[in-house]
Amino acid sequence: MSQGSAPDARAAALAERKARASLDEVLTSRQMVFVTGKGGVGKSVVSAALALRARSLGLRPVLFECDAPARLSLLPDGKPVKDDISEVAPGILGINQRSEEAIRDYAASTLPSKTVADLLFENRVARTFLRAAPSVAEMALIGRIALVAEQYGADGPVIVDLHATGHAISLLRAPAGIMRVLQKSKGVLWDRAQHIEQLMQDPTRTAFVTVAVPEELPVTELLELHEQLRAFKAPVGPVILNGFVSPPTSVSPAALQALLSSDKTALAARDLRFLMAQSERCIREKARLVDGLKAQHGEASVVTLPARADNSDERLAPRLLEALQRPVVVPPLDAAGGNP
């Protein structure tokens, strides 16, 4: 198993410390923090943990969910996130944005008056068009996020729990798409789309935090996502590598083989091998992620969070916060130099 040499361990610990500082900087200084990654990597739990971290930094974050299924709160002492903005845990605001409502809200905020917006929605043709046209729902959602950020962003970041990779990208492409369609004559929607596109590309106001687990497909997808984000000129924050399995106490290959071959110890030995293989996979995939990011950006900022097995949802996010706040132990220089 590759434990790496002592200087490597020291470099890894320093990189981890730097990545966490960068994550804190993002939470402290940006209005919109988009959390995205492949489905199933724990985006919602990571978003909740980021909200907890922002709160402990003295901020008042907004947890922004998009068409989230009804579920219990992921926050300790939390209430379910509702369709309207409300306090979902002490010091944390939350909203679950329905795309249908986003379309209506967005139109209302874009048009000269609420009466005009209502008139528009009462027209069946206009309403159907707005609902069914493939760009409008995405644009409305992004518009809504920007509005919430304008309103609450000064007190803390709006942490947006986006959908799976592919759909996050279509969401981000929406303003450019709208502007392309409207390029002949620039109406209210064109202006708004341009404003939102600029906002999303502004590194002083926005960051994209990507999440992966140390498995082949999620890491590959994250690296592809980063290329797309760069093409989009989106400001990229640190990557969060979730579900890192810590190495088990290991045994020599010869001993493992002997244990696997005996009927009485085979099952337990299989479990041990399972853990060793998982840990090796985590180390390998993290290295691939770091190398891939370095190849793209020249540097890699990765925050590593441990695998967790909890029986209740509301303990997952606090566990991640705990891990996030646990000091990173950096091996001293002397030990590094003295090791063979």
């Binding site: 048009l111 043709v125 409207l182 390029q183 209210v188």
Partner: peptide, 12 residues
Amino acid sequence: ALQVLGKALGEG
């Protein structure tokens, strides 16, 4: 409502 739609989306 239709006038508004045309205006908001731009005549182009």
